[in-house]
Simulated assay, not measured.
Amino acid sequence: MAALSLLSLLLILLLPLCLLFLLSLIVRPRPVKIPINDRHVFVTGGSSGIGLAIAHRAASEGARVSILARSQAKLDEAKQAIQLATGVDVATFSADVRDFDALRRATEEAGPVDVLVVNHGVYLPGELATQELDEVRFMIDVNLIGSFNMIKAFLPAMKARTDRRPASVVLMSSQAGQVGIYGYTAYCASKFGLRGLAEALQQEIIADDIHVSLVLPPDTDTPGLAEENKRRPPLSSIIAATSTAMKADQVAEKTLNGIKSGSFIVPCNSVGYLIAFATAGLSPQRSYIMASVEVVCAGISRLAGLFILWSWYSSIEKWYAQRKK
């Protein structure tokens, strides 16, 4: 009986090791380290918020930094702020990501890029039933089509780079790119689209040693969020409060760490990790440890997700019940 108990204990101890060994054989793409120091990091939406924080952090880590946004005045302010803090000279490019020709000109002027951070984005709050289609098109055009434009413009030079160290394409999505949220219909559609873009793109450029990261921040304390809150439906704020808001510098730190480790999914807080486990699906995963957590926690994370959805739908039911009184 004691021998049987000892055998059972050994099997329990061996199972995790067997799982890790199996994952070490099948996890793809393979683990990679992507250097930032002395590389060219190009950031869209780089004049404020998360983009500015990423540019600032990349410069402080020894990168050559370029930033792109629509307003040249804001770009000049951002450039000066980064230079004062880090001593790094920053190149600026004024362009609308919806204008492919302007982006192609920026590509020619900027030269080869090692890390392309596609960070731009807009959110116009509203329920689809009352929102104008022009606003829907605007979000899709900027968030999704603008990302295609950026990658299409910059990718040829990245593929032809003479520096053959690993390179990176980073897409700034959102927790609203993992799960639908009340009042975010068009925004969610645009950010969900980035995941499909990222997963397929990774397969297309892995042979060029270019690695895709999909960053999934929650609400982030930026000037854009302040404007959103002025018109965001109350229910959207209630549901978004489920995940704690972050500072732009915190998201930038998570982003740079994700880039350097070649992580495909880059959650930014505890709720983000929970959602990432629940929605892992067929997304690439480089880390054997994270892959094992996904395998083991699949059922648990689904249960936790159902509790979150229960909370959200309960809030919606209560809200509309109160309005009917």
Rank of each mutant, 00 (worst) to 15 (best):
Q80F: 01
A248F: 05
L23W: 12
S8D: 09
T279K: 13
K260D: 04
G111S: 12
F192C: 04
V293G: 00
C188E: 01
A91T: 13
I308K: 11
V296G: 05
K33E: 07
T255K: 12
D89E: 11
T185K: 02
P223L: 13
T255Q: 12
K74F: 02
H56A: 00
L155G: 04
P233V: 09
T220W: 14
W319N: 01
A189Q: 06
G121Q: 09
I67Y: 07
K324Q: 14
A91E: 11
S236I: 05
I151T: 03
V170K: 05
Q178A: 11
F42N: 01
E109V: 12
I308Q: 15
F277I: 14
G272R: 10
F154P: 01
D134H: 09
I26T: 14
T86C: 08
T242A: 13
A81F: 08
A106N: 00
Y313W: 12
R231K: 14
A91R: 15
V65I: 01
A110I: 03
Y123M: 10
Y184P: 01
G305H: 04
P29T: 09
S292C: 04
K33D: 00
Y288C: 00
L10M: 09
K230P: 11
G121D: 07
V212T: 09
F192Q: 05
N229G: 13
L25T: 05
L7G: 00
F192G: 02
A167N: 03
F307A: 08
V179A: 13
G49L: 05
D101C: 00
A55Q: 05
F42Q: 08
T222G: 05
E77D: 15
S314R: 15
Y123W: 12
Q72P: 00
G87L: 05
P166Y: 06
D163A: 13
L13D: 10
A129F: 10
L194N: 03
G272D: 07
A240S: 11
R286N: 02
I82W: 11
N37C: 08
I82C: 02
I300W: 15
L214E: 06
G183R: 10
I206K: 14
M1G: 05
A59V: 09
Y313R: 07
E61S: 02
S287L: 07
L4Y: 08
A91V: 02
I54S: 01
L4D: 09
K260S: 10
A153K: 04
